[in-house]
Design a protein around this nucleic acid. Structure first.
Lengths: 132, 132
DNA sequence: ACACCTGTTTAGAACCATTATAAACTGCGA
DNA sequence: TCGCAGTTTATAATGGTTCTAAACAGGTGT
């Protein structure tokens, strides 16, 4: 029932589908990366009832807007999301298209010297591309 | 004729279309960012004959593979490319979707401490998201 | 417990950037 | 000039994502 609370507190009505998607996304030891397609399969595996693709899209976007998920900036035919919302970065293995977490402690501090007036920095994301 | 040489030297047959696309991309004072759609319009403006969309895609991908263009890792419905192939980074203004260059001197050195065995780092790209 | 309202879910269609196709064309070496 | 492999082209196909509008379901007030 913890997800019902969490959802209600952030202004999202705690529907059956949203709670079930929370369970798939957040009932895990480790955080993980996924595409909508990955998530669709995970849901099929873990949940008896069907959740429509449109709902999966809606929910993922709603969760991202609330800050429960992060989109990973990467050029791929599919959008990648991350259940790890802490500041961290990624390796991207070009050979097999796999993403690997880079903890913040794995990357030295990043100092942005340039400023754009009227704007503030929302996030700093580093993508390290790997080849053989 | 400089582009004919350049193309031939990198194993690309210097066709009329490729040379013309070179002129649109590289005959400029400053480097710039673009989507395929942007490039299509630029070509229409500067070139008399038509170049088909498929050729634009083919050429951009060929140039990227040869290292004359870089793809910018960003989540957008369209793929962004950059004629600046030096190591540098980007601001991304979330409000209006605009990209702004961050010169390497604007960003302190980035130290990646983690290693993946058998893999080497091909590139390090930083995306700084801006909000109001 | 009921009804109602609004937010949510749903299947399917629509959208649109990108890629595939296959026929016509062209740079270039023989 | 000939011939071929590499390119270009218009168009169709693909596939992830978004839209639509009808059915459904939390939640509040009665």
């Amino acid at each position: 029932m913890k997800y019902k609370e969490k959802l209600r507190n952030s202004g999202l009505r705690p529907t059956k589908q949203r709670v079930q998607i929370c369970e798939v996304l957040f009932d895990t030891e480790k955080t993980f990366h996924f595409t909508i397609n990955d998530l669709e399969r995970k849901i099929k595996d873990k949940i008896d009832n069907k959740i429509s693709l449109a709902t999966i899209y809606n929910t993922v976007h709603a969760f991202e807007k609330k800050g429960y998920l992060k989109q990973i900036p990467i050029n791929s035919n599919q959008t990648y999301f991350d259940t790890n919302i802490n500041d961290h970065h990624h390796f991207y293995d070009l050979k097999d298209g796999k993403l690997i977490d880079l903890e913040n402690s794995d990357v030295g501090p990043i100092n942005i010297k340039k400023k754009i007036n009227g704007k503030k920095i929302k996030s700093i994301e580093v993508l390290v591309k790997l080849e053989d």
